[in-house]
Amino acid sequence: MGLADWGRLIGLSLLWGGSFFFVEIALTGLPALSVVFGRVALGALCLAVMLGGRLPRGAAVWRALAVMGLLNNVIPFTLFAFAQGEISGALAAILNATTPLWTVVVAHLAGAEALTARRVAGIGFGFAGVVVMAGGGVGTVPAFLACLAAALSYAVASIWGRRLAGMGLQPLQAGFGQVASSAILIAPLWLVVDQPWVLPMPGLPVWGALAGIALLSTALAYALYFRLLASAGVVNLALVTFLIPVSAAALGAVFLGTRLGLPHVAGFALIAVGLWAVVRRSAKN
């Protein structure tokens, strides 16, 4: 990769790592579902402006985008938001790094890719890291399971997303379709559970965090992701998975005073070894 692509990669890791940071702040004044709905609704609005009216068309396209929105936005965003009521954003970001490991498993079960010895070893190291963190008592079991389920949902979405390749969608159209569908899907649950009309008005830091997660970590991140995908390729783009926990931990340490303990660091080291094994093998394929 060239210097420009490395800059984009680091920028993307900050945007996605920042999502855990922004959620942690937003949860101080809003319930989890309100944070998720605000993220996808504002993100969809921003992407619609960026598209300038060139929105996706066709019932089949929107059905595929709705499933993608459910798997890639509604389920993982909601699970991570609820988990971050119990654990830090840095720890949630580390558990999010298991997504490529889940992707290998899902791709194998779907018959899309072979499960080689190197990949099995990588999966073993990765989930050993999760066990190390859980054994260190650094988070509740439901929060851990929620984060792992969110990562699994991302993995299933990556396999489903291959269906979109032949539909003639521009990258930002796919991004808009996902988050717009997500806003529609989650709106009824948000209205019933959170009853936003009775919630107290949040303060400026919460509004700022909500704007940050929607405009920066969702809309701008989608634009940068697809730009990097085109210029650097999917294998190099996988490196962002290593950088997101670092970005999330750095932002939390600087602005929120959170610190990673030894179980966090040891667990992430094992996950990183597993990711390295999977990505290195992918690069040879």
Results as ranks from 00 to 15, higher is better:
G126I: 06
S247H: 13
S19I: 00
M167K: 02
M1H: 13
V206M: 06
G2R: 09
Q178L: 07
I184P: 02
V36M: 07
V132P: 03
W207V: 06
S88T: 15
V23L: 10
A41D: 02
L191Q: 13
C147R: 04
K284D: 15
L33I: 08
L3Q: 09
I271K: 07
G168C: 05
V106T: 04
A26E: 12
T218A: 11
S153E: 00
A114S: 14
S182E: 03
V130Q: 04
M1C: 08
A32T: 02
G11V: 01
A97P: 07
S182F: 01
T218N: 12
F144P: 06
V105Y: 02
A112R: 14
L199Q: 15
L275W: 13
V156I: 15
L47D: 11
A269T: 13
S88W: 00
G252C: 09
V235R: 14
T116W: 05
V40H: 05
G252E: 09
L172F: 06
L101D: 07
S13W: 03
E24F: 11
A157N: 08
P245D: 09
L30P: 01
G274V: 05
F80P: 00
A26S: 10
F20D: 03
V198S: 10
A66F: 01
F37E: 15
L262K: 03
T258K: 11
G208E: 03
S247T: 08
A248Y: 07
A114V: 02
L109V: 14
A134R: 13
G11T: 00
S158L: 12
A128E: 02
A149N: 04
A41V: 13
T99Y: 15
V105Q: 08
F226K: 08
M133Q: 09
S231H: 07
A157T: 01
G52F: 03
V156Y: 08
L71H: 01
G208A: 05
P188K: 12
T98M: 04
G233F: 14
L145E: 06
P205A: 05
A180T: 00
A269E: 11
T99S: 15
V61C: 14
